[in-house]
Amino acid sequence: MSEAEFVADGDVTWVHVGHHAQSAVSLSDPSYLAFEYVQHLALAVDAVFARPAPLRVTHVGGAGLTLARWVHHTRPGSPQIVLEPDAALTEAVRRELPLPRGHRIRVRPLGGEEGVAALAPDSADLVVLDAYAGGQVPASLTTVEWLGEVARVLAPGGLFLANLGDRPGLRYAARVAAGARDALGPGAQTAYVALHGVLKSKGYGNVVLLASRDALPVDDLMRAAARQPLPTGVVAPRQVLERSASTAPFSAAAADTAPSPAPPP
């Protein structure tokens, strides 16, 4: 496992693993979210679930536990499971960036495949995929088969979020979205939230995929996106379908898998 480096910058501590800054944590202000894609994840959670009611959350990928800390701050009492296979990283994060008192965050030293498979049906209101290895989402965590396990775990009214790195055209995100719709069943909806430049195919960047069996609150998402400090847009479910009507999901059974596109040097 990679050794973590903790770099203090005023009140914010950056967690570096390898050559990548994976997390930014403010112990005094858990509402501070430095990365725009984490802001977009939080935006999506707030659009679907009203504060401060607790949520049952499963995080696939942990690093500095930034989003788990934010959930605890905005929805106290939320039981959260974090699947983070890098036990040494978790130990270092706990030592350097202690979790708040009264939290219900439980970190399991498991990867996304075995970790999600071990969860009970209907046990999560929210599942968040934010797992990277070498700057790419592992191929095994975007197949229609694994997304079927996510669908099994999601309770009625539940939401799946995925932080996906993609190139112009968003073909990778389209295949993950197709898999999520197949896994969640008829009527499932998918949407994207990202910076305008990413949605307009102006460069590599992060796209937050939303998927639910229920109708997504597009108007609320758009209003929240308009309030973001950086120009942020929403691709509504109908537009996602138009972009990817003939797109096939990734499938482990068909030996058709791929990690997310690598970021530029």
Rank of each mutant, 00 (worst) to 15 (best):
30 P>S: 13
142 T>M: 03
158 G>I: 02
205 G>E: 11
213 R>I: 06
245 A>K: 06
100 P>Y: 06
94 R>L: 14
38 V>M: 13
74 T>Q: 14
79 P>I: 00
182 D>P: 01
17 V>M: 13
168 P>A: 13
262 A>R: 11
82 V>K: 02
12 V>N: 03
70 W>I: 09
128 V>D: 07
179 G>I: 01
77 G>L: 01
124 A>Y: 12
265 P>T: 00
105 I>P: 08
23 S>V: 03
30 P>A: 14
11 D>S: 15
152 R>F: 04
236 A>Q: 11
210 L>N: 13
201 S>Y: 03
169 G>Y: 01
114 E>C: 10
52 P>F: 02
151 A>F: 13
228 Q>W: 04
3 E>K: 08
232 T>P: 03
120 A>D: 15
96 E>L: 02
190 T>L: 04
211 A>R: 00
250 F>I: 03
144 V>P: 05
117 A>R: 15
27 L>P: 07
122 D>N: 15
148 G>V: 09
47 A>D: 07
2 S>Q: 08
148 G>H: 10
226 A>M: 07
25 V>T: 10
9 D>K: 12
193 V>M: 04
214 D>T: 12
149 E>Y: 07
201 S>T: 00
213 R>S: 05
182 D>S: 05
216 L>P: 09
242 E>G: 12
172 Y>E: 04
121 P>M: 07
95 R>A: 15
6 F>M: 04
121 P>K: 05
184 L>I: 10
130 D>W: 03
49 F>Y: 11
146 W>C: 10
242 E>A: 11
182 D>Y: 01
203 G>P: 03
184 L>Q: 07
130 D>C: 03
234 V>K: 05
57 V>M: 06
207 V>A: 14
171 R>K: 11
178 A>W: 02
214 D>Q: 15
124 A>C: 14
81 I>D: 05
199 L>K: 06
31 S>I: 00
106 R>S: 08
37 Y>K: 12
39 Q>P: 02
171 R>P: 01
179 G>N: 01
99 L>G: 04
39 Q>A: 07
82 V>R: 03
238 R>T: 03
216 L>N: 06
113 E>T: 15
37 Y>W: 13
237 P>W: 09
110 L>Q: 14
133 A>M: 06
120 A>E: 15
76 P>K: 02
20 H>R: 13
